[in-house]
Nucleic acid binder design. Structure first.
Lengths: 232, 232
DNA sequence: TTCCCCAATTGATAAATATCAAGAAGATTT
DNA sequence: AAATCTTCTTGATATTTATCAATTGGGGAA
């Protein structure tokens, strides 16, 4: 399937300042494909052949080591993944699978590297994209390193709450099983962590979580913009 | 103190392909300073005013949250830190302190951003530098997420062993207290982890660690280039 | 050298997290 | 609607990790 017209891609900060010609070249080489849920898009260790964008749906980035597996991030429209591997012309450090029916844009790695070499504006956009990625991972690292599971959950709820317009409740963006893995815990412990947060006004009803006492939840969570604010 | 002559800086991949003029401008604005051990160079949350290079000595990058502190990395000559914060014109996500007497090169943030805008080669070098940083943090994250403390220690020992030319023993690059924090554990647990590794041929004599049975140590560690190989 | 401070170790205990097992609740298929 | 499958929850237990306390030991300062 070829790329007909994807204005939302052109509007990404990565491509917005790119020359018309370079962008056209990239899109000419690109593939737009629909995948069902639970399809592996790439495996860690594979050579980085494509740069990926989630146009619709949702993709899990995950990794395996020492007999364990963990989800590192969810990518939602319109987000890219594994840019760094492409630029280093190296292997993927993470695996990726669709977590629901998804529409994925794939740009061959060599075309991306060519555009990086030839288009100065694009090269600079990539710098800002990578800086953002880097800082996001540092935040994830600090979250995992310096907080307990209950604290991570509490902060995550507060973060979702902000992102959803602070209506007093939170709509979980995925199954609790996935959420648990993103938070670096088992599903069992996520259930228990929700239980621990009950005295802090947290009530779970399916995928909806009511935050009845933001004050005391924040006291427990100790939210920190240097970890929890995506914009910082 | 002004920068007289620092060929090792010019030779960094970040600067190697930069124009003579841009590099001269940067160095004219830069400061080269000597610090004793245990001096705070910057604090997380501060505005990113300088890009730093360790010319001699050693710097710890660390962070605080929820009443806990952790060392995220050691930077040794000639390494840079907090490039991403400079480019985003944002705040530092990590704090930095000298862990020994050190010579530090500091380049004002605005000069770095100016050079990034004006020098196309420099902009591309930054991309590769950031890609490397990003992948390094992802590896750290996977290490912490998917391995127990004993496994992290075992793999770290094997990594140092490789880096030091595989002489059958390892010279620890820092105090055990710092090493413990880098590995994401307490000093007490590091001691016990060394004890756990004794049956696998690991014998500690001060800062020297003899690896007497690489075979069985590797079986326990399950080293993985997608985490442990700095070059991947 | 002697003293002193701090790193390092060891033991006892507590907290956090994972694992195993079983049942309950939802969702999907037939 | 019934059957089936998976997620989610809860309990019991084990592992991992942290904390508190008490020494021990090594490196620098006077």
């Amino acid at each position: 399937m070829r790329v007909d017209d994807l204005p939302e891609i052109r509007q990404l900060s990565l491509f917005r300042s790119m020359s018309e010609a370079s962008f056209a070249d990239l899109m000419k080489a690109a593939y737009l494909q629909n995948f069902p849920a639970q399809v592996d898009l790439l495996n860690e260790g594979d050579n980085a052949d494509f740069l990926f964008f989630v146009v619709e749906g949702c993709v899990e980035l995950y990794a395996n080591a020492n007999g364990r597996e963990g989800v590192l991030a969810l990518v939602r429209p319109v987000g890219s993944f594994i840019l760094a591997a492409i630029l280093e012309d190296s292997v993927y450090l993470m695996s990726a699978r669709t977590s629901e029916k998804s529409r994925i844009l794939m740009i061959p790695a060599q075309n991306v590297r060519d555009a990086f070499e030839s288009d100065d504006r694009f090269a600079r956009s990539i710098v800002l994209e990578l800086s953002g990625y880097f800082r996001a991972v540092v935040k994830e690292y600090k979250d995992l390193r310096l907080r307990t599971g209950v604290e991570r959950l509490a902060n995550r709820l507060l973060k979702y709450h902000q992102a959803q317009g602070a209506p007093g409740f939170v709509e979980l963006p995925c199954d609790k099983k996935i959420l648990a893995s993103i938070l670096g815990m088992t599903p069992e412990n996520l259930s228990r962590a929700f239980g621990t947060l009950k005295p802090y006004g947290v009530d779970v009803v399916g995928k909806k979580v009511v935050l009845g006492d933001l004050e005391s939840l924040s006291v427990l969570a100790k939210p920190n913009p240097l970890i929890d604010d995506p914009a910082t």
